[in-house]
């Protein structure tokens, strides 16, 4: 226990829900999950590359968080604590599947009949997903944490166990690769 002004940055709703869950109110856990499903699901999806793996990682993270809730010493920071669990579960899920990312199958023409013309936006998303999938896992993770989750390098270091210098290098290489793969016309 430490007296700390940073704990004044409270998220009362999260803390309140965590307290209720600890007191045996399982139903209070539903709103907590709903609160973070979209944002954390987005991270899991981009890291793992498909919905099925992302849902599995998210479910595992929620389950583990519930069972370990006693160890969340700062309930007002439940989100950060949960995200740490999710990052680790995503790593475990990726390794267990024996691959780093499944690519969504591109939309294919069938003999010219009933050809679907994907929207430009959908194609851009697919291209981005393919590019992301070509990164090595550590680079993809670092890129997502930096640019999508918008963490500082300090926070990333604490989350991943890697040093800040290593993380900066991973992000740099990820950016270089994405630029090359996705054709950065701005760079010319």
């Amino acid at each position: 226990m430490t007296a700390s002004p940073s704990l004044l940055q409270v998220s009362p709703s999260d803390a309140e829900l965590v307290l209720r869950v600890r007191q045996g109110d399982l139903d209070a856990y539903g709103p907590l999950m709903t609160r973070y499903r979209l944002r954390f699901g987005r991270y899991a999806y981009h890291l793992l590359g498909n919905e099925s793996d992302a849902e599995e990682a998210l479910q595992d993270a929620f389950t583990l968080a519930y069972r370990s809730l006693d160890q969340c010493r700062h309930p007002e920071r439940f989100a950060a604590w949960l995200f740490r669990i999710l990052v680790n579960r995503c790593r475990t899920t990726g390794v267990r599947r024996g691959r780093e990312q499944a690519r969504r199958a591109p939309i294919e023409a069938a003999d010219g009949i009933g050809v679907h013309h994907p929207s430009e936006e959908a194609m851009r998303r697919e291209e981005l997903a393919r590019g992301l999938g070509r990164l090595v896992p550590e680079q993809r993770e670092a890129f997502l944490l930096k640019y999508v989750e918008e963490l500082s390098y300090e926070e990333m270091a604490a989350l991943t166990g890697a040093g800040e210098s290593a993380l900066k290098m991973r992000v740099k290489r990820a950016c270089e690769q994405l630029r090359e793969l996705l054709g950065d016309t701005d760079a010319s």
Partner: peptide
């Protein structure tokens, strides 16, 4: 202090 408060141990 903020660093220590942010870095909850993983279960």
């Amino acid at each position: 202090l903020r660093l220590r408060d942010r870095l909850e141990p993983a279960p």
